[in-house]
């Protein structure tokens, strides 16, 4: 595999992206329920509970506030589509959406879009793009998501 160097002189043209670790979510799910649809298998998994821990955000998953609504391809790659609600330790509500891929080779990456109260303590989450990676228990009912800010 050849390496393609980025020319130093192109910094005014090519924008950089850096990742800063922000927080992690330990989520517990009900067993997945899979149905066959014209678009492939549809995999629903209810998010039962969860805890967010990080320097700037501590929160709990609002129980049964959503979950995973994934489409499973013929090669078992999942198109990840997740929606759920957090309740922060100060009582504020936060919406989280994941869009990404979970591949059979272990690649589980997503983008998280987060909405919070603009007048609240977690306004910094708004208009922040998070890059997410995840590790799962063998039964896929316990998942840890790691959130990095795309700065």
């Amino acid at each position: 595999m050849r390496e393609f160097a980025i020319p130093e002189t192109h910094s005014k043209v090519m924008g950089e992206v850096k990742l800063d670790y922000a927080f992690q979510l330990h989520a517990l799910y009900d067993p997945p329920r899979v149905s066959h649809t014209p678009k492939g298998d549809f995999r629903y998994q209810d998010i039962a509970s969860g805890e967010v821990r990080g320097e700037r955000l501590n929160a709990s998953v609002y129980p049964d506030s959503g979950g995973q609504y994934d489409t499973v391809r013929a090669d078992r790659t999942r198109d990840v589509d997740a929606h759920f609600i957090l309740k922060a330790d100060n009582g504020e509500w936060i919406y989280v959406e994941h869009v990404g891929y979970r591949r059979p080779d272990g690649y589980y990456r997503a983008i998280a879009y987060v909405d919070a109260d603009t007048k609240g303590a977690y306004d910094w989450l708004n208009n922040t793009t998070f890059v997410v990676t995840a590790t799962e228990s063998p039964d896929q009912r316990s998942v840890i998501f790691y959130y990095y800010i795309a700065n």
Binding site: R2, E3, A5, K18, Q24, Y146
Partner: peptide, 12 residues
């Protein structure tokens, strides 16, 4: 053949 740029890794 695949041509790629260098990878930058990040951790917590």
């Amino acid at each position: 053949a695949a041509v790629t740029a260098p990878t930058t890794f990040y951790s917590g």
